[in-house]
Simulated assay, not measured.
Amino acid sequence: MITPAGPQVPAQASPSPPAAAFPPAGPARPRRKWWIAPLAGVLVALPVQLVAAFLLLMSPMALDSCSAASPCGRTEAAIGASLVLLLLAVLSLGVPWWRARRKSLGAGIGVSLIPLGLTLASIGTLLVGIVLG
């Protein structure tokens, strides 16, 4: 049996996937009305942060009864922790705007609750430290 002596072409195992199956490699478009969740989060968190700042400014009066004989270590630590949490809450006001633009609605709402949660943690830490201190 004689076989033709031409070049042999290997058979393709499977065709390549269509180009429409993969999204373009460019930047993703922002969602419509992505700004509603961050705006609502900021509008709720800012008044609560003002209350937390007022409580934090008034909290040194809780240390008036402290002396060398009866130190108020827990209250001082709670005031310091509350200050750190409040500063983190103020700094985190920008996080929802950056994160919610490209993610889903649930991620936008969840991330928008971060400043409010940090602010409430600041108030709770301050109040617990004063009561237990």
Score class of each variant (00 low, 15 high):
115 P>R: 04
131 V>M: 10
21 A>T: 14
103 K>R: 13
115 P>C: 04
65 S>I: 03
117 G>T: 02
123 I>N: 04
114 I>S: 00
115 P>K: 04
95 V>D: 06
41 G>C: 01
110 G>F: 02
92 S>I: 06
64 D>W: 05
89 A>I: 05
94 G>H: 07
48 V>H: 03
86 L>S: 10
88 L>D: 06
84 V>Q: 14
72 C>D: 08
81 A>I: 12
16 S>T: 14
116 L>N: 03
70 S>K: 14
123 I>C: 07
79 I>C: 08
92 S>R: 07
72 C>T: 08
110 G>A: 09
4 P>I: 08
13 A>K: 15
37 A>W: 04
104 S>T: 13
70 S>G: 05
20 A>E: 15
30 P>K: 13
41 G>N: 01
47 P>T: 01
119 T>P: 00
15 P>R: 15
39 L>H: 00
5 A>T: 12
14 S>C: 10
10 P>R: 15
23 P>T: 09
14 S>E: 13
64 D>R: 12
119 T>H: 01
67 S>Y: 06
117 G>S: 03
74 R>S: 07
86 L>T: 07
102 R>P: 00
51 V>H: 03
41 G>F: 01
68 A>N: 12
22 F>L: 14
1 M>I: 09
88 L>G: 08
68 A>R: 13
68 A>Q: 13
108 G>I: 01
58 M>R: 12
110 G>E: 03
92 S>Q: 05
46 L>Y: 01
116 L>D: 02
17 P>A: 15
